[in-house]
Structures are given as C-alpha cells and as structure tokens.
C-alpha cells in the first residue's frame, strides 16, 4: 500500500533522515521505534506530505505522493504528537469542524462525530470544553479528530506521550481494534518499546536518521537469540560499579537504567558470581536481580549501545 524509497531530509547540511526505505501492506500495523531525535517525526511528516523530502520518494499504491499529495491526503489520518485541537471549543465542536473541512455535512457529519466519540469513549462528555479535559481525554479526542473522514491509513506519532496508564491502555486497545477489527493500516511511532511490541506486526528501528533494523518482533529478537539480559536493581546509582561491569570481558553490553544496571551476556555464561563480587567491592546494595529473555529494548541497546529513552 505504502512504501518509501531512500527518504532523506537535510536541515542546514545535517541529515535528520538519511535514506529511509520502509513499506506498509494494507491492513498491517507497523511500528517505527526509536529514541527522541531519531528522525521518526521527520520521516512521518514526509510520508504524510507535510514536508517534502530532500531526496527520495513516497509511493501510495505505486504513485508518488511527493508529486501528487492530494491522493494521500484523502486516505490518510494523522494523529500528531501534540494536542492539535482548539482548546477553547468543545470536543463536539472540534470534531464538527474537522469533519466539515473534509466536506462532511448534515446527517453524515453528525453520524461521523458520534462514531468518533464512541470510538474514543467520550460520548458522554462531548459538550465539554477541551481544555477542561485531562491529558488522556485530550489525546483521545486528538485521535478522534483524525478519524472523522474514515481514513484507510493512519499515522500515529507518539499518541500516548505524557498520559496516565489508564488512558494509555485505552488508546492502545483502541488502536488495536482499529487495526484488527476495522482493517485500518497503522504506522505507529513510539519510543515506548512495550507499546510497539503490543500493537505492531512488524517493526522498524530508527536511530540517527537511519533504519538500523527491521522485521517482525520475533525476527528482531532473534538478533539476540544467543544472549540473555540481566537486570540488577540497586538502591542508588554506583558509577564505579557500572564502569567495572561495562569493562567485564564476558559482558556484551551494559547500560545504566533509572533504578540499576542492565547487562546483556552470552546465553549460559555463569557470571552472576562475579557481578555479586563487584557489588560487594563497591559496597552496592542489590535489591533485585532478574534474568530475562531479550526484549526489543534490549535489541535496541545491542544495536546502538544506548537505551531507547536516552
């Protein structure tokens, strides 16, 4: 349905996106995973026709949307990262306006508004002013506004940033429904690995403006099939301990997390003993140790040497 061909965007001689090629089949849910500043938003702004690529092309059903953005705009819904709503109007008035600009009117418009409100679970509070909503409710209306014209393809740019777990779960379930039950093609960008793991069939991992890995979740995780992850929870950060573990010859990769240290080691290596010895030497208090199978986050760590939320 959609493919990009060596997309590149250069700002002031610096490439924000450098030769990105990806594709989406009809009805597929594809994740674009990467840390902040990886170039995800720039990539989707080119795909959605908001900005023109410096080089490369975006094709919808084989036709260039760079040359003819109109075709893309008809079938595309975009959920931006920011709350792109008129905060001084009610949810109903916002949806009414966004419906009107797509040429809806009368009973068709009313029906579309009620469907969108039902989808995001805010039918009861449709007459309230948007700025009085919680962050999560505003994000839901943000999604509803993109659904007014029943798009075939929806691009969601970090739609769950800064909201409570309950609203986040509601939004993820909604996206899953749209994809699985209504057959909507979804391009979902996030730096939350667990969201992409839950929603997407295939994943592209981006860093520094390029795609560094792609495939199904299992294919990506198989990159680390020979490794396992040890997560050590500590009472506070211990930089010397981290430095010592990072230099350990048996440890493939080490990263400091909020509450401790994450290590990637070859499967079957018995190094827990030496980890405890190092902790003892640095008088570090270990609260918890967990040996896990690798996640997409670990894959990212393995590929870039950095965490997704760095």
């Amino acid at each position: 349905m959609l493919e990009t061909e060596e997309l590149t965007k250069v700002f002031k001689s610096k490439a924000a996106v450098d030769g990105v090629s990806l594709y989406l089949d009809k009805g597929e849910s594809v994740g674009l995973l990467g840390p902040n500043g990886a170039g995800k938003s720039t990539t989707i702004s080119m795909i959605s026709t908001l900005s023109k690529p410096t080089t490369g092309d975006v094709r919808l059903d084989g036709r260039s949307v760079v040359k003819d953005p109109g075709k893309m705009r008809k079938v595309l819904g975009v959920v931006p990262q920011e709350i792109a709503l008129y905060e001084d109007l009610s949810a109903y008035e916002n949806l009414q306006f966004f419906g009107r600009i797509y040429g809806l009117s009368g009973s068709r418009l009313e029906q579309a508004i009620q469907q969108a409100l039902e989808l995001v679970g805010l039918k009861e509070r449709q007459k309230e002013i948007v700025k009085t909503y919680s962050g999560g409710m505003q994000r839901r209306i943000n999604i509803a506004a993109a659904m007014m014209h029943e798009p075939e393809l929806i691009i969601m740019d970090e739609p769950t940033v800064g909201i409570d777990p309950q609203s986040r779960s509601h939004i993820l379930e909604m996206v899953r429904q749209l994809n699985k039950e209504k057959g909507l093609t979804v391009l979902y960008t996030s730096h939350y690995m667990e969201e992409v793991e839950r929603l997407c069939d295939r994943v592209y991992i981006m860093d520094h403006g390029t795609i560094i890995a792609s495939g199904t979740k299992d294919e990506l995780k198989s990159i680390l099939s020979g490794e396992e992850t040890i997560w050590i929870e500590l009472d506070r950060p211990y930089p010397e301990l981290f430095a010592e573990l990072a230099a350990h010859p048996e440890i493939v990769q080490a990263a400091e997390t909020e509450k401790g240290i994450k290590l990637i080691i070859p499967k079957g290596k018995r190094i827990l003993g030496s980890i405890f010895q190092s902790a003892e030497r640095h008088q570090a208090q270990i609260l918890n140790v967990n040996v896990q199978t690798p996640t997409l986050e670990d894959v990212f760590l393995h590929l870039t040497g950095r965490k997704l939320r760095d």
């Binding site: 959605s48 026709t49 908001l50 109109g70 705009r73 008809k74 595309l76 975009v78 931006p80 990262q81 920011e82 709350i83 792109a84 709503l85 008129y86 905060e87 966004f98 600009i101 797509y102 040429g103 506004a145 993109a146």
Partner: peptide
C-alpha cells in the same frame, strides 16, 4: 504552534 495548522494542511482545503 499548536499543530492544528498541519491538520488543515492535510485536509482537502
């Protein structure tokens, strides 16, 4: 600034 402009640009207007 708040992003509604992009919504308008992406519409058939």
């Amino acid at each position: 600034k708040f992003g509604t402009w992009n919504r308008l640009i992406l519409s058939p207007l």
